[in-house]
Design a protein around this nucleic acid. Structure first.
Lengths: 70, 70
DNA sequence: CCAAATACGAAGTCTAGCTTCGTTAATGAC
DNA sequence: GTCATTAACGAAGCTAGACTTCGTATTTGG
């Protein structure tokens, strides 16, 4: 509930840091751009398999995706 | 692929540290004992909603669940 | 040895992650 | 102030995989 939103914001932060678009991230992860949009807005979280691909695409270990600065 | 196994082992570590059984964890998360068993063995990962409940049940922040040693 | 805890298979259910289509609204470059 | 790119958002349907139940090993610790 809370977690999906925090996670989404974190993905967006790291994506901006990497200076890539949602579309580019979507391609690398292998999902649609809408799915990335939904993840970043906290509509839904990624599957575990896609979580792993997001890590790889953003070039960060899993724990970095769950480090929220409040 | 890799992530689910690492995550499963981490859950087991933290569950042992809390000295609770799979059954007790299952109750608190609201899933069956087999589901916890499958998660710990890396058969499948939890949904994002259940990930949040696992955090709560184990009393750790999300990032702790993704801190794998070595 | 015994009991509790966990692993494991198979087979089926169901949720939520994901898709496509379509529209609107920011953002920013020129 | 227009144009193109990026991203937000809805709705409606599909589908993978998360989850269940049943049943039987196997492991662990007392």
């Amino acid at each position: 509930m809370q977690l999906k939103k925090q996670f989404g914001k974190r993905v967006q932060q790291l994506r901006h840091a990497k200076k890539i678009t949602q579309e580019e991230l979507a391609e690398q992860v292998g999902v649609s751009i809408e799915s990335i949009s939904n993840i970043e807005r906290g509509i839904h979280g990624p599957s575990f398999d896609n979580l792993e691909k997001i890590m790889t695409a953003l070039g960060v270990p899993a724990k970095k995706l769950f480090e929220f600065d409040e």
